[in-house]
Amino acid sequence: MIPTGSHHSQARDGSLAGVGPSTGSHHRNPTPYSLGDSSASATRITPGNALRPEDIALAAAEGTAHPREAVAEYALRLGDDALILAQRLGHWISRGPELEEDVALGNIALDQLGHARSFLTYAGAAWGKSEDDLAYYRREPEFRSAHLFEQPNGDFAVTIARQFIAASYQYLLYRELTRSSDPMLAAIAGKAVKEVDYHLDHSTQWVLRLAGGTEESNRRMIAGLELMWPFVGELFEDDPLIAEVGDAGVVPSSLKEEFDRATAAVLAEAGVEVPAHPMATGGGRHGRHSEHLGYLLAEMQVLAREYPGASW
């Protein structure tokens, strides 16, 4: 059996994360800005206390959550990253190398989907759109995801390499975002950072295992890192929107040094080099995507678009 340490129990506890009570249920917490029950576990949902997308939608409907345009655009970027990653990871469920990984990757996908729903719901509040309007009825150039998240799953090592970069980035980002001047972004980040902390642990452990396992796993891990590393650059690029968002957001370039230090430390422990490839030209934040996104969206959106206006 694969020694997955404490992941398994956490993953099982989190199996309902993102589900929450059905819509329209009474919620005990009247303020959508709460960081949630301070004793809440990172992976166990605590309905009524934890911040849920439904709470944000309710706040939007009541007019108490209304981000300014730049903040909504910023939330859209974070939401799209998480949504596309969740869509990618969801494909692993029933295909993992071990049942424990079906559970773990499924759990991470669920967390990401939960973050996506929160960010998209909040962004949509600026434009009178729901999370589903944004997920299912935007065209490819209207998505704001970075290229890293769009990359195909590849083999397990490629997925782990993508996860390692994604979690390292998201952990630093959300940690800083908890101090956002926008209380809703701070609240979403407060919940998300606890979950991404676990994603980072999961991918770090696998980088070490695969790099230090067999010759084949070492070769595959290095190949996975080489394939994904060029997409690191885009994550830390600043642009005019970031200046407009101001202290409601996090300046991407400000995270780069710690990202480099933290990832280099793990790779050093794993005995592999930080890939030296030049960075790829990004463009995702401005709607210029990889070749892969179109297929992903076609699959994700097909049923919803077959029945426009239907509810599910």
């Binding site: 993102g18 969801g90 499924g106 996506a116 729903r117 997920a135 699959e299 599910w312």
Partner: peptide, 15 residues
């Protein structure tokens, strides 16, 4: 899972 028609349904199905 990849074609669920709403994000809430996708989350429930994944779970």
């Amino acid at each position: 899972i990849t074609r669920a028609p709403s994000l809430k349904r996708k989350a429930i199905l994944m779970a």
